[in-house]
């Protein structure tokens, strides 16, 4: 019999209108208990209005070794940013 409770990642929505943000992790035997433990552990001081728990094993992460091929190509595409474009003075609402 295993007594090892799996690891869960906890995401908290601090108030309506904001997205859930990673708060930390915890151990629990199943999703229901993970949710309750997350409530007691990460929202004791009214930090949240909504919680997600996700099995840590279900997270697929990009590898730091692939950082360059993953993220560098986005670095030289300045035309994706509004500041790339020159607009004459006095033109408004643009």
């Amino acid at each position: 019999m295993t007594t090892h409770w799996p690891l869960w990642e906890v995401f908290v929505r601090s108030r309506r209108g904001l997205s859930h943000t990673h708060a930390g992790s915890l151990h629990a035997p199943d999703a229901e208990m993970a949710l309750r433990n997350a409530r007691d552990l990460y929202t004791r001081r009214g930090e949240g209005v909504s919680l997600w728990v996700v099995p840590a094993a279900a997270v697929t992460a990009s590898s730091p070794d692939e950082k360059d091929p993953f993220f560098e190509p986005a670095g030289d595409k300045a035309y994706r940013h509004p500041t790339f474009y020159a607009i004459p003075d006095g033109v408004k609402h643009l």
Binding site: W5, L26, H27, A28, N37, D40, L41, R44
Partner: peptide, 11 residues
Amino acid sequence: PALEEDVALAN
């Protein structure tokens, strides 16, 4: 029985 329960019961 688990640290998580220390927190829950105290709550």
